[in-house]
Design a protein around this nucleic acid. Structure first.
Lengths: 233, 233
DNA sequence: TCAAAAGTGTTATTACTACACCCATGT
DNA sequence: ACATGGGTGTAGTAATAACACTTTTGA
């Protein structure tokens, strides 16, 4: 039915790809997952991981497929970033790319990432090498978007295991916003917000005293969403 | 070069469209520009205005083309909203659509909108009729995005002529956020922010006393952007 | 006992909310 | 003179920012 609405007669089909920007936190730093082809051609070139969208596949499903082929992680936080559609963005021909970004809990399981014919590597976001095509621009946009989003949405929690300590969370937010955060004010605001549920156990891996484990309070969050809670610290 | 990176062999081209969500403020209400086909088939169905993306055309250029074909407005505020890519979103076949949203200064010139074979019409956003395909969902998303964006970016000014009064601006923000705003607090915050430059003249079209005309201070805005100025009222 | 990380309170400043009356002018 | 919309100030409350010491415990 929409053929005439859109004037199908003049339409020419084009190649559509997805590219995934994957963030994680390791060594108290915000890191990006990048890939280097091991085999010719393009051996040695760094890029994001992507794929063409199949004719019978939702665009978002293509992005999920790329991530799932990468590791066996489930329930990955993933969002569409932007459609990159300049004619000359891909030197190999006209390819429109829909970029997705995701957050991965690196510390939790420390799984291996394996992409066929690619070496996967985490790099701190201030040490990203030159990437192919417009992937550098995509990453730049994704970082900006992540920071913007983190101001009003609890993305910090997506980068940590389900049970985490306040010092861990603090370091995640320091990594995202790239500045030191006053830890007394951080605690005060968080604890007052009722966004954390304290668990009756401690994590002693990073200190002798040990620090309390918490989990995220989804109900409180949904309440705060309405009122525009500010996650900046 | 990217042919092998992306594995071009398995790739099949697909149809790509753009659809435009156009907002304006009229009668102190946030309004949406929608279109009804006058001729068969699909006569009487309301929709957004869209077009297919040409092979030698940037996606953003396609969106601009759609807007420019609509009226002779220049320098329209336009942003990409989202890529809608579900397989079955278009009942006429697989079409991936990139939605763009824009803000138009309606009051200023009150120009006519003319789309070939379509009747253009402004409708208040709480009275939008059923739209074809997933256009209703696009509009929903665009409204949410506009409100989100308006909290930290001066989108209110995009909906008014270059010279405007504080009462006008207040009404625009009331329309966007859909609630009454205290006018003393609104003025106080705006005037303190240095975002407005007062002009040595008054607009007397709406009152006998007349109210001062202002223009937007771009320099102040760019300074405030860094520090995360909050445009909520 | 000491090193290393966890945890705790107060004060000053700034932003936000609520609220009611006078002003200027054209008719 | 009066009706209409434009303009102004204050006080209470809430959020934010700056800042230094004590606690716990494994080695």
């Amino acid at each position: 039915m929409s053929k005439l609405l859109h004037n199908y007669n003049n339409a020419e089909p084009q190649l559509i790809a997805v590219d995934c920007i994957v963030f994680g936190v390791e060594d108290n730093q915000l890191q990006l997952l990048i890939f280097k082809r091991e085999v010719e051609p393009l051996a040695g070139e760094w890029s994001l991981l992507g794929s063409f969208v199949k004719p019978n596949e939702d665009v978002s499903a293509a992005a999920k497929r790329v991530l799932e082929e990468l590791s066996d992680l489930k329930d990955i936080y993933m969002e569409q970033l932007h459609c990159y559609g300049n004619v000359d963005r891909d030197s190999g021909g006209r390819v429109i790319s829909i970029a997705y970004w995701s957050l991965i809990r690196v510390n939790q399981t420390h799984e291996e990432f394996h992409a066929e014919n690619h070496i996967a590597k985490w790099v701190p976001i201030d040490q990203i090498p030159k990437l192919v095509l417009d992937h550098g621009k995509m990453v730049e946009d994704a970082i900006e978007h992540l920071r913007e989003r983190a101001r009003f949405h609890p993305v910090g929690f997506e980068l940590l295991p389900e049970e985490f300590t306040i010092p861990q969370l603090l370091k995640v937010y320091e990594a995202i916003f790239d500045h030191k955060i006053d830890d007394r004010n951080f605690r005060k605001k968080l604890l007052k917000s009722d966004l954390l549920i304290q668990l009756p156990k401690k994590d002693k891996t990073t200190s002798k005293k040990g620090s309390f484990l918490y989990k995220f309070n989804q109900e409180t969050y949904e309440r705060l969403l309405q009122s525009g809670y500010n996650f900046e610290f």
